[in-house]
Design a protein around this nucleic acid. Structure first.
Lengths: 334, 334
DNA sequence: TTCCCCCGTCGAAGCGCTTCGACATCGCGC
DNA sequence: GCGCGATGTCGAAGCGCTTCGACGGGGGAA
């Protein structure tokens, strides 16, 4: 293994000079730097990560905790993970993968052993049990998702309330007066997953603001449930002309169910959704939708962490504005 | 930060004794060990990962390279990742997440900087560009998937050839005489992804062995393509009564297409698939299928790596036997 | 009883890097 | 012509842990 002393000898300088040339923490003459770089290339030098971590008390590794639970849309999780890794690499950091199963102990372990410099936690619940731990940890963290009170934490996510509102505004703008929200399975609300509730809040607030008649319907993530909900909506709210769907697996089955019941989308019923773009695009009827901007969220989380690691201060809450992509599933009320 | 010397002082022993008590590399009297453990607990000691890595030249971290490419079924990738992390934790190791995008440089980097002790590479192609690198690296690796020649490497995967055979044997056992394989998109074969070709090999070999009439049909991963293939099969092979599907996204659309063309599954046509269990279970007609045992593969990869890290020798090829779950989509030939 | 060996423990020497203080050199202003 | 700050480099001291060789004491074999 070639080490920094080898490089130093080869370049005719001291090890510390090589170190400073590498880190840029002290000025090095252009000429010397060049010589050092040549030596590094020639010898194929790679600094030892462990030694570096020990001496600098920085491992240049971030922890990423991914959720495993049922009801989580896996491709979206993967998108987050990839965008976090990609963003981390831009800052010369690597990413350690933790599963939620490891729980609080896992977080404590990687933090206390200095394996990682900072942590990113996905799928935060309103009253997440990990919050006190994260607050007390001696290293910075960023949450993807919002707990009930983000005091002392740093959180980033799509602004789901605004997303709910935006869907409603879109429908209202098209003249719809009676709308419904088909939401996530009941257990998601019980579990107090913040984003689901926030969609409901935004939906309801915007409907009220616009003087619309609105209703909210939690729904299991199974095709059969979609059918039931569709029938129920027709029965209970015959004047319904607009639907917001916040339940990925059910989007297509629900549209199918409406059509099977004789409602054309968008002819008789306009549908908007909060779901990944590729899902909205590939549906039988391409769906007007708001996507979760996984790339932005992941990259944003990393940027926030880097700022914190650099000693900067960051806002407790970062809400990404929803963007509505208009597709074929919505049209003006007939 | 509490360090090993603190523990040693507190327990009235030398630091080396604490170290040996922790690692078990030298005998320590029960009494002393107990005292040390108490001190550790009382002080909340956590060994510093970097220091440990430096002194022992073991980081206790594995690299996992996940694929990003289109045509890869994301939930399966996630399953692999989770099972690797879980298995690694059982061996007191952590997992560093690398994206394929980082390519060979990423592998070299984490290996050369001693950030990781060993590597797991997913989605290996027949003539993968990373193979020479992996062979030359000074740390062990395990491939999930098989290249053209695994010489000098360690590979593990489902035995896709056997899977292809098993599907055919199942159909043959039910009396079917004319069968077809609906495969992956053409580019998957062009790309020389081993597993797709191996399914074809197994399918063809078993069909020949059983004296069946067989045909192979690559197929795009889009519903429209499913419809086309269904029509083509009916036209070109009217006597067809058995189909093997090796193309996740198309499984359901294909069954739909067959039924739309007047063929009942399994009444007129028996269908088997190689796909995740939950997909097979949730289809309109639950599909007789062979699943990719992501848990076993991931855990197996870690076990192999641990054995190699421990100085043991392991077989170059580990093929996991396919298991066929019989469901509602197959029945004896009428 | 003597010798040997094993068990349990210690001390010290690193592992490869960063960083702090020191120092020499140079150019500038006065 | 002198002092001073800026610039560029060096040496040495760790960072916290593992591991090697050494060593004292106790038990078994001869």
């Amino acid at each position: 293994m070639v080490k920094i002393t080898d490089v130093a000898r080869h370049a005719g300088v001291s090890p510390s000079t090589v170190s400073y040339a590498l880190s840029g923490k002290r000025p090095i003459s252009e000429e010397t730097r060049q010589r050092i770089e040549d030596s590094i290339r020639e010898l194929g030098y790679r600094p030892h990560a462990g030694a570096r971590a020990l001496a600098s008390s920085r491992s240049n590794v971030l922890a990423l905790v991914v959720p495993l639970r049922a009801g989580i849309h896996v491709p979206v999780v993967m998108q987050f993970a990839v965008s976090v890794v990609t963003a981390a690499r831009r800052h010369d950091h690597d990413v350690l993968l933790l599963t939620q199963e490891e729980g609080e102990d896992g977080l404590r372990r990687v933090a206390d052993t200095a394996l990682v410099d900072a942590l990113i936690v996905m799928d935060v619940q309103l009253h997440d049990r990990r919050l006190p731990l994260l607050r007390g940890l001696d290293r910075p963290s960023v949450l993807i998702g919002f707990p009930a009170s983000p005091d002392g934490l740093t959180c980033i996510d799509l602004d789901f309330k605004a997303a709910g509102e935006l869907c409603v505004e879109h429908l209202a703008g098209l003249g719809h007066r009676v709308i419904g929200l088909v939401g996530s399975p009941p257990e998601v609300y019980v579990r107090e997953t913040g984003f689901a509730q926030r969609v409901v809040q935004g939906f309801t607030a915007a409907a009220d603001r616009n003087g619309l008649s609105s209703s909210v319907h939690p729904c299991e993530a199974a095709p059969a449930a979609a059918r039931q909900i569709a029938e129920q909506l027709l029965r209970e709210r015959p004047a319904l002309t607009g639907v917001v769907v916040h339940n990925e697996p059910i989007l297509e089955p629900l549209i199918d169910a409406f059509e099977a019941l004789g409602l054309r989308v968008p002819g008789d019923l306009s549908v908007t959704a909060i779901c990944p773009d590729e899902m909205a695009e590939r549906a039988r009827v391409p769906v007007t939708s708001i996507a979760i901007p996984a790339d932005e969220v992941g990259a944003g989380a990393v940027e926030l962490l880097m700022k914190k690691l650099g000693g900067g201060t960051v806002p407790e809450a970062t809400l990404l504005s929803p963007r509505l992509a208009v597709r074929a599933s919505t049209m003006p009320r007939p």
